[in-house]
Design a protein around this nucleic acid. Structure first.
Lengths: 192, 192
DNA sequence: GAGTATTTGTAGCAGTCGCTACAGTAATAA
DNA sequence: TTATTACTGTAGCGACTGCTACAAATACTC
């Protein structure tokens, strides 16, 4: 029984890489088997069916995400404009682009009504939002909204400028400026 | 020859509705034929191949979009916060949700590298941005960036909250507040 | 009405899909 | 050693994919 589970875990890891590389297309069992160095027959031995396989791999990705985010951003609270600035740099990097692309893929499938992808997409979304909300140095009442705004602004660039997210630079800079303007105004009113 | 073209146009219209309803899944030729009240054989008579069919329908959707947008928003310039407010109401409405969903579908396919969807997605994106930029009552230098920010914020909610875009309300309200704060600050500095 | 061009149905190809029946080998327990 | 269990290869099913060969029907021109 243990060899089965070991192999299963190994397959999940191999496919995690593959999914981040290629998204949710290219998910035929025979192709996945090739990537994982096994046969379609064996994939269906390790997993109940294809849905369970997808769920396992995507959940693994979702789980690994917060770790790498925390590593990148640390845990000290940051202002909204700083968080957005750092996130934008990350979004443009080769390391994080795959995650964003996959998230977009998931969201598209979820919006289409697929229940499997819907629950996983929601899980990943709340993961991002909670992580960012906890990182933000803004009033408690605004944390979730600010986190959602920042994340939406960044993903939105991926939707607006497919394949060339960097073209969203102007829009992001504008939002950063808006955050700074707000912070300044609040500092003044606080001083008054 | 004319009957062929007439039928072709009719098919495009029927499939336009279908694509807005169901997105880019459910695009098998036999299924599309059923929806269009014909046969797969005939679809490939009206169109060169499936790609040309998809391109024709999606282009038709892209073309119809600006018309309905102009109808909804008029042509008098509006402030950024007003545009966002109106767009958000529209985004939550049943009439526009299909367009957003389809756009998300397209963007996901485009980000995956599919050249057909990439060019169409870019066409639709620039359509949205240009239309909104021309509508915005903001300094020329900021128009595109503001338009992209507004659009990204709205689509982003679709990505963040699949199937329940309304949950992005807080984030949108926050951005509206940021726009208003900026306008106020500029009015003050202008008066000084 | 003959002859040509346009339009349409039938049938099927070669490929993919998720999945399974069956048989065989390898490891483990008695 | 025997019996049970875990593992894995082969082969294929039935349903689907985009697409096409072929032939028949229909419409149009002369």
């Amino acid at each position: 029984m243990s060899k089965k589970l070991d192999k299963r875990a190994e397959v999940i890891d191999l496919l995690t890489v593959h999914f981040l590389d290629t998204g949710l297309s290219d998910t035929g069992l025979r192709r996945l088997a090739e990537v994982a160095g096994t046969s379609d027959r064996m994939l269906l031995y390790y997993f109940e069916n294809k849905d369970e396989l997808l769920a396992a791999v995507l959940t693994n990705i979702a789980g690994g995400l917060s770790a790498s985010l925390t590593q990148l951003f640390g845990t000290t609270p940051l202002s909204a404009d700083t968080v957005l600035e750092k996130l934008w740099v990350a979004a443009k990097s080769d390391a994080f682009k795959p995650h964003l692309r996959l998230w977009l893929d998931l969201a598209a499938h979820a919006n289409r009504g697929d229940p499997l992808f819907l629950s996983i997409a929601q899980q990943i979304s709340t993961g991002w939002i909670n992580w960012m909300a906890s990182l933000l140095d803004v009033p408690e009442a605004n944390k979730d909204a600010t986190a959602a705004l920042i994340l939406a602004a960044v993903d939105g660039q991926l939707v607006l400028f497919p394949g060339e997210i960097a073209r969203g630079e102007h829009a992001i800079l504008q939002l950063i400026a808006l955050f700074r303007g707000q912070a300044k105004a609040q500092a003044q009113s606080g001083a008054a």
